[in-house]
Design a protein around this nucleic acid. Sequence first.
DNA 1: AGCTGCTCCTGGTCGC
DNA 2: TGCGACCAGGAGCAGC
Length: 282
Amino acid sequence: MPELPEVETVRQGLRGLILNKTIANVEVRWGKIINGDSAKFTNDLVGETFKEVDRRGKYLLFRLSDDLTLVSHLRMEGKYRVTPQAQEVTKHTHVIFNFTDGTALRYLDTRKFGRMTLIKTGTENQVGGLKTLGPEPTAADFQVADFAQRLRRHKKAIKPTLLDQNVVAGLGNIYADEVLWLSEIHPLQPANTLSPAQIQVLHDNIILELTKAIQAKGTTIRSYTDAYGATGGFQLSLHVYGREGEPCERCGVTIEKIKVAQRGTHFCPHCQILPGSQVSAS
DNA sequence: AGCTGCTCCTGGTCGC
DNA sequence: TGCGACCAGGAGCAGC
């Protein structure tokens, strides 16, 4: 479910709900969510206090006392909720952090794809996924020259290349389609054939689009809500995702949906032209 | 090294 | 109404 703007919104909400709360005990109801031994996971967390919630790409980094960090990835449908401990535990609740004040942080995940790992703070770069994660999509971290160099290594289509978190962190299926439409680049164009001008435009649109989506508190298509259960607002700003059959806002031609690398992909067949595919007028 | 296909899960929707 | 096929915002892994 969540891409970078949604994870960032969850992070901001959680800060207000759990900082300075101390864990009394932890209940793991679906062991596969935890990387490693879940008995050790629960034991190590007893008595720990949440000091900060950071984020890197789509990963949440819960900073605890005693130099521990809980790395959490929500994957498709993961959600956090803070509730009274007495509140009924719902069907898809898989991990419960009970606090000493009578409240609890609960992790919900319909499809059970999310993962958590408890590590020593400072060893984040040894965790799979974080090890090779690309730059944050911000002007400070995301350099166009570096982006160009990474794109040159990939002959495959630009769409799945943007979904590769090692190229740039944070894009998922929705924002990948959106930034390609904004940049007027066809999703099937091989990544290593983008012109310098295309790379520059794409780079700038990635930063701008994710910034705007964070300001709108993310995009809610199916099930995403933040830590307070609130939906995002950015779905109102989507130009192609989920709009197959509707006219392109720029040119009026009907938006199409195709499969690219097994993922649903939305684009405008008039604005987003594959180089070399133009039908000659002979 | 890079790419494709498969896998982890549940639930909603669509066609018959 | 029931049933099967297919779809869904992600990413790790095997195998080529």
